[in-house]
Design a protein around this nucleic acid. Sequence first.
DNA 1: ACTTAGAAAGGACATATGTCCCTTCTTTTT
DNA 2: AAAAAGAAGGGACATATGTCCTTTCTAAGT
Lengths: 233, 233
Amino acid sequence: MKEIKDEKELHSYLEQHQLTNIFNDHLKEHAVLCEFEQGERICTQGESARFLYVHVSGKIKVYTTSQDGKILILSFKQPLEIIGDVEYVNGAELLNTVEATSTKVKMIRFDFEWLKKHGNDDAAFLLFLLDIIAHKFYRKSTAMSFNLMYPVEVRLASYLLSVSALKEHTFTDRLDWLDLKDVANFIGTSYRHVNRIIKQFCMEGLIEKNKGVIVIKDRAGLQIMAKDNIYEQ
Amino acid sequence: MKEIKDEKELHSYLEQHQLTNIFNDHLKEHAVLCEFEQGERICTQGESARFLYVHVSGKIKVYTTSQDGKILILSFKQPLEIIGDVEYVNGAELLNTVEATSTKVKMIRFDFEWLKKHGNDDAAFLLFLLDIIAHKFYRKSTAMSFNLMYPVEVRLASYLLSVSALKEHTFTDRLDWLDLKDVANFIGTSYRHVNRIIKQFCMEGLIEKNKGVIVIKDRAGLQIMAKDNIYEQ
DNA sequence: ACTTAGAAAGGACATATGTCCCTTCTTTTT
DNA sequence: AAAAAGAAGGGACATATGTCCTTTCTAAGT
């Protein structure tokens, strides 16, 4: 991680994401723009949280690891995302690990102490946090119900649709979201089983696959398979 | 549902749960104490939310239903619980259905409109909401990871431990949390399978069961089975 | 182009879980 | 107490998913 001491750039990011009114001048004063390498961790599950991060550029993934080493990927995210919000509010240790999956991941960092001093009496800031966390809860809630109620083929169909709905410019950008190992860990199943279902989808004519590249052939069919559920990215 | 027009009682509940400082005088002005019958719905999934409820007495369950009729119970709750908080913040329709599972379930009701007028600039109220929602997110998050990563025997062991940790006065109070149909819908599996695992636990000497009453025989063994996870109620 | 290391895919089998329906137990009614 | 209705439990089989290991493909190095 390196700190980028460029106030201009920092403020341009804030404006780009309409955050200038969210963080008051006191808060902005101590904001730091950080850049992370691909593969670098922004924060690690189990450690104590000291910073709130506003993810403004690049791609990240959020995952959790169980005692016995199982990995569950909770989300692949692009901006705008907030990291550390829940921990800021409840004071608990970090729930998940966050890792940069593209180069030049940029985050605006705020120190918890400073936020407490100058943000906890600021309704705009608190409403912003509320909105973020409520939205996270909403997604988590629907995702959990969905995961618990439907088998892998439904979840995978839903996942494929959600990826195809992304507004990615280039073709290779899309591929980032389709590493089957990651997909398995996201859906909460084994790589083997994802493979099995992928093959089944191919045979049913829902998708096609060449050299690891998956193309949707029958969107309507996939939607039926997904029972109209789509993971919100 | 009937409204109880008894300011004394309402305020005694607020005090009991240390909420007097959370809701300012404006907000309290329009608070209404409501009582629900056993089996009555406090709110219904899919409808638009208009009220924030503070659950102060009795027992409730929260569940969601899928398009094809599957039921997933999200929690069995005793006070203190807040209903409608997420919907208040994000304006979406109700995510879940909430139902009274005991007689005389009491809730303090606040109108969204009134809250917006007199609460959204009140840091104490906003911090309270933040705390509640962050905590809900935390529980949901750990529950989802747990559910996705472990098989039913682990989840059931965890559930049994969590129920045994409840501070219920009477014996019959405990039974409320052990209807196996409900347990199955909570864990996200079939009644048949819960039964199977219960029997397995009996054979392994972890629990005993007589006429539908389950008694824990080997807490340490259950904890190992649960891999130290416990559902937070 | 050949070799080889590593990634991706798949076969075989074991386990976990769901569905359907029959049996057994409980409770209520007569 | 006998009978009947309903709840709870369980058998048998089908499906979903996990584990382990082999095979196939891909890409890098020579």
